[in-house]
Amino acid sequence: MNWFISEFNSFAFRFIKKYNLAKAPEVTLIYGPRGVGKSTLLQELYLREINEGKLLTDARLFARQYAYAAQDDKLHPFRKRHRSLSLLLLDDLQLIEGKAKTIEELHYTYENIIEHGGKLVLTVEGELPALDFLGERLASRFSGGAILPINSPQDYEIKAFLEYYTHEIRIIVDDLVLKSISEQVKNLVDAKMHIKKFLQYAEIHEDELGFPCFQAYWEEQEVKRQETADPVNIIRNVSKVMGIPAEEMVSISRKATVNTAREMAIYCIRTLCSLSYPAIAGYFNRNHNTIMMSCKKMEEKLSKDQELKNTFNLVLSTFKTKKPENSSGFSD
């Protein structure tokens, strides 16, 4: 594999590099935060594994194809294809959260693959391998094999990755630029994205890839980021509107005011970003069930408290985003 390796991903990398279908555990689960290379590992394994009965897909596509098959009365060919696999590589399990029928179909798919001697390699986004959204039975089965963590990379690891990446694409970038990016982002995907955008910015402005040009680029990005409805911005804005420090909102504090602000931030993230409960949990150092309950509590409070509802609408307006007609409609 021609892949960047460091402490944060070395354990998972070594396991996948030595993966042997005949000797592998029935289920291998790779977990970690966004943008650290989980999908890349699956892709590398798919390309390396010489086997006609393999399939690489993600949970959203699995759910969509299952729904189409059910709608068009084509479940038999769908099931024949998936349940006879010798190796199923399924990315982003968290994307089927709340889709009860899809989860049930995946359970039967798993049982059939294992019954015929096949294997599964799965990924889920999160700081912990939280699978309770799958239900107790399937979660216990997926957790019963090999569990491979990919941790968040440290600043020096992100900088080393950027040095590796810029060398691969044959460009020379000021070391201060690489250092600045590594201190501002938390994963490899975002780091790579900023290098690409910086190259485009420098080309448009006919400037060198130096630090002054990067500072101008970064200032422009900061203005755009403040208007983007991402979890970090939402937490920051809820903090500002409700007067509760962001640090307290993600802490273990149980003060009533902090709890309300935390629930508001969670509900706004769920509304504006449509993230899964496990993905949101990573921002608050909590589990999937706690996040789900926080959403339900805030939904109930908003239906009874006009002042709180005004606060919710104020947060939404910060991002120039209209409230969805059914902001609580996160069902399958």
Rank of each mutant, 00 (worst) to 15 (best):
Y164V: 00
F4H: 01
L316D: 05
M292S: 11
F133L: 00
E163G: 13
F78Y: 11
L138S: 07
C213A: 15
E125Q: 10
H167F: 05
R34W: 05
R64M: 11
E206I: 05
D207P: 03
I103Y: 00
L138E: 11
I114R: 10
S253K: 04
S10F: 07
K320V: 08
M292L: 13
K179T: 12
V185T: 11
L178R: 00
M193W: 04
H76E: 14
E163W: 01
I30N: 01
P212V: 05
E203V: 00
A191K: 03
L302V: 09
K255F: 06
T57V: 14
A12K: 00
R137H: 11
R60G: 04
T321R: 14
S10Y: 04
I269W: 07
Y283Q: 00
S251Y: 08
R60V: 12
Y31P: 00
Y68D: 13
S239D: 10
S253I: 02
I204A: 09
E227W: 13
E183S: 14
T271K: 01
N2F: 05
R14Q: 14
E111S: 15
E115K: 15
A69F: 10
A139V: 07
C295H: 06
F330H: 14
E115Q: 15
E52D: 14
Y217N: 07
D155L: 08
E115Y: 12
E299C: 06
H116E: 12
K119Q: 11
A12H: 01
C273E: 05
K323G: 07
V315T: 02
I269Y: 02
L316K: 07
D92F: 04
Y283F: 14
L41F: 04
K297M: 07
E168G: 01
F8H: 14
L162Y: 01
E157V: 10
K23N: 13
M293A: 14
I234T: 11
H205V: 03
K38D: 11
D174H: 06
E263S: 12
A246C: 03
Q43S: 14
V250H: 01
D174P: 08
A261H: 06
I158L: 08
I96Y: 02
I266D: 06
G53R: 15
E248T: 09
P33L: 04
M1R: 12
E203N: 08
P231Y: 04
L47E: 10
K320H: 15
I280L: 06
K80P: 05
Y156W: 05
S143D: 00
Y110S: 03
I172S: 11
Q226C: 01
R79P: 00
T257R: 14
T318F: 12
D58I: 05
A130C: 06
A216H: 10
K309L: 09
I204T: 11
P153H: 00
I150M: 10
R262K: 14
E219I: 08
F13R: 02
V241M: 08
E263Y: 08
Y217P: 04
S152A: 15
Y217K: 04
E115R: 15
P278A: 04
V36T: 09
R262F: 05
D190L: 15
K18F: 06
R48F: 10
A63N: 13
E220T: 12
Q65C: 07
Q71A: 15
L90R: 07
I195Y: 08
A67H: 12
R64V: 09
E52F: 15
K323W: 02
A191I: 08
D305P: 02
Q71W: 08
G37P: 00
A63L: 08
A59H: 03
E44W: 13
E157S: 03
F214C: 00
G118A: 13
L316A: 03
M242K: 07
